[in-house]
């Protein structure tokens, strides 16, 4: 999965699940401050990302460090890369 595909799929989750306009989905947007997600939304974000990317991330410690969309893209990318490595 390319970096661009990860961005597009992630952004789609924000548009569909949280009704956030595409224009606001810039990499340095803070998920809490700029995009307005709260603790309940984070649960839903995890559920939606798990479904969208076919990964299990609920118990990943690194989730707690995510602040911006760029953090999230990188996190997903690392999870997908780890997955790819495991499959080799």
């Amino acid at each position: 999965m390319t970096g661009q595909e990860i961005i597009e799929k992630t952004n789609k989750v924000f548009e569909e699940s949280f009704e956030i306009e595409k224009e606001r989905l810039v990499p340095d947007a803070n998920i809490f401050v700029d995009l307005g997600l709260d603790s309940l939304d984070i649960v839903d974000l995890i559920v939606a990302l798990q479904s969208s990317f076919g990964v299990k991330i609920r118990n990943e410690e690194k989730v707690r460090d995510i602040r911006t969309l760029q953090d999230l893209y990188q996190f997903i990318s690392s999870i997908k890369n780890e997955e790819g490595t495991k499959n080799v």
Partner: peptide
């Protein structure tokens, strides 16, 4: 309908 087929809670959303 979400939870019971696979007895899986991970697909339930927060609300």
């Amino acid at each position: 309908e979400t939870m019971l087929p696979d007895k899986d809670l991970s697909k339930l959303n927060s609300t």
